[in-house]
């Protein structure tokens, strides 16, 4: 300790100029303005969401009837018809994509969380997975076109599934890893201490502890790709017909397969009222499915995401 403590008495040491307090008015005003701005921004963001949903409901609701789900689209310029084939196609394409990507992503996530951990390979894979999630979906579409459609000389629903699976894979892997990382280590150790083999501990104890998170993650990953359009543009393409069987020109592996998003895209640009109406109907189905499942997952697993 040096002199200063004793050398100055009273507020403000002698050699220093007296303090001139600043008024708080401006600072408080700026703060208040930012608060207002924050509320406006948040309200605007949510308002846009409601505007979009409202618009889709308003324009799409009239298209929805029984036939919408069961019938083929009408011939251009005519009335009636539905998007039955497209809805079915989307369900099949998405289902197959999930069938491929969810187990792979799941085990990939297990490897990252349980085996790879902080090793060099795992760190690399994790990095690649994160980057992968940012690859534009159109690029994935182009990739599958070049890898699958072009060599086989035909579009197919299966190619669409592969494109969607490609997008799902890193999402599922990282989600699984993140959730497994939340499982306390004691749980693993107690399982292993009981002499159970690693795979049983992981699949039995760890996964069971994390299952609601895993289900949420899997469903949300699936729902997300179900709404994708760009990866299907040059893979599944589209078709005015029903999906018929597996092979052959109208089969899942053999030819273009109708799907909801591409159909909506095509129809929305057509200058025919009925086609546009169907497009809005399709949009309504998509938005109800996507938002509905998101909300449902939240309701079932209350703490789905801590917002």
């Amino acid at each position: 300790m040096s002199a200063p403590a004793t050398s100055h008495n009273g507020p403000g040491p002698a050699p220093l100029k007296a303090l001139r307090p600043r008024s708080h008015g401006r600072r408080k005003a700026v703060d208040a303005a930012i608060r207002v701005f924050a509320w406006v921004a948040a309200t605007a963001g949510i308002a846009v969401m409601f505007l979009i949903v409202w618009e889709v409901i308003q324009r799409g609701l009239s298209a929805i009837d029984w036939g919408f789900f069961t019938e083929l689209p009408p011939v251009v310029g005519e009335d009636g018809g539905g998007l039955g084939n497209a809805i079915l196609g989307t369900l099949v394409i998405t289902f197959v994509a999930a069938l491929i990507a969810l187990p792979m992503g799941f085990f990939g996530g297990i490897w990252l969380a349980e085996f790879g951990r902080n090793g060099k390979i795992a760190t690399g894979v994790r990095m690649v997975a994160n980057v992968n999630m940012g690859i534009p979906s159109i690029v994935v579409g182009v990739f599958i076109f070049a890898a699958l459609v072009r060599p086989l000389q035909h579009y197919s629903g299966f190619a669409g599934s592969i494109a969607l699976a490609f997008i799902m894979l890193p999402v599922m892997a990282r989600t699984t890893e993140d959730i497994l990382n939340l499982v306390p280590n004691e749980l693993r150790e107690s399982g292993l201490a009981m002499g159970a083999p690693r795979w049983r501990v992981t699949l039995g104890v760890v996964i069971r502890a994390a299952r609601s998170g895993l289900i949420t993650g899997a469903v949300l990953a699936t729902v997300r790709v179900a709404g994708e359009t760009a990866p299907l543009l040059f893979t599944a393409l589209s078709s005015p017909y029903w999906l018929q069987g597996l092979f052959g020109p109208e089969g899942f592996f053999g030819g273009p397969t109708a799907n909801l998003t591409k159909t909506v895209y095509d129809f929305s640009g057509m200058p025919y009222e009925r086609m546009q109406e169907l497009a809005w109907g399709g949009a309504l189905v998509i938005i109800v499915a996507v938002l509905g499942l998101n909300v449902l997952m939240r309701l079932i697993f209350q703490r789905g995401k801590e917002w």
């Binding site: 040096s2 200063p4 403590a5 040491p13 050699p15 220093l16 100029k17 303090l19 001139r20 307090p21 600043r22 600072r27």
Partner: peptide, 21 residues
């Protein structure tokens, strides 16, 4: 800076003083 009006020299003096104390 937040509560007072002051120029650079005053600021430097005050900072030094506070650190000394």
């Amino acid at each position: 800076r937040q509560h007072y009006k002051m120029n650079k020299a005053e600021l430097a003096d005050r900072v030094e003083d506070a650190l000394k104390r």
